[in-house]
């Protein structure tokens, strides 16, 4: 039996410990906000936070997160920080098709957790593992910097 904390709630998983975390999130817990792009840890669409650090959930077997705290986009959007990020992504016009956005928002959250006043280079480094094929990134970078300014004190 694998136990971990998912979006603040203690959960259990009794299947194969080698099941990818992304499949457990999407199939067993119905959290389909986490997307699968490449399935090889290259695109960042499946990013979640594991103990506050950005992790690609397609690469990690669920057996490796025993006792860990996992936060997905569904958990983040319920928080003030998440709401601020989502509002700023909307206001900046940072979203086109939207597929990469949950991963982008998680990467932004991971950055702001350790650096509440990032500059543009910090932001670009923080999302360097997240691929977006629509926006050209500039508006996403704007959105994250906007969140760090508008949400001053939240992080």
């Amino acid at each position: 039996m694998i136990e971990f904390v998912l979006n603040g709630r203690q959960v259990r998983f009794s299947g194969n410990p080698l099941t990818r975390l992304i499949d457990v999130l999407r199939e067993d817990f119905g959290l389909t906000g986490t997307k699968e792009g490449c399935g090889e840890g290259e695109c960042g669409a499946c990013s979640v936070l594991r103990n506050g650090k950005l992790t690609t959930s397609c690469l990690i077997p669920v057996g490796a997160v025993c006792g860990d705290e996992i936060v997905t986009i569904e958990g983040l959007r319920e928080t003030e920080q998440g709401k601020c990020l989502i509002d700023c992504f909307a206001e900046a016009g940072a979203v086109q098709c939207g597929f990469c956005i949950p991963g982008m928002v998680m990467a932004a959250q991971a950055l702001l957790l350790c650096n509440s006043h990032p500059d543009e280079d910090d932001v670009r480094l923080a999302i360097s593992g997240n691929i977006c094929r629509c926006t050209g990134y500039d508006l996403i970078v704007d959105a994250i910097i906007m969140a760090s300014e508008k949400g001053a004190g939240l992080w």
Binding site: N16, L18, T19, R20, D23, R26, E27, E36, G39, E40, G41, C58, L59, I60, P61, A64
Partner: peptide, 21 residues
């Protein structure tokens, strides 16, 4: 198996399918 960043890719079976080692 530690981080999984090499092995989970090498032995992946596809979306929704558990890797087989």
């Amino acid at each position: 198996l530690a981080g999984g960043t090499d092995l989970m890719v090498q032995y992946k079976q596809g979306q929704g399918i558990t890797p087989v080692f």
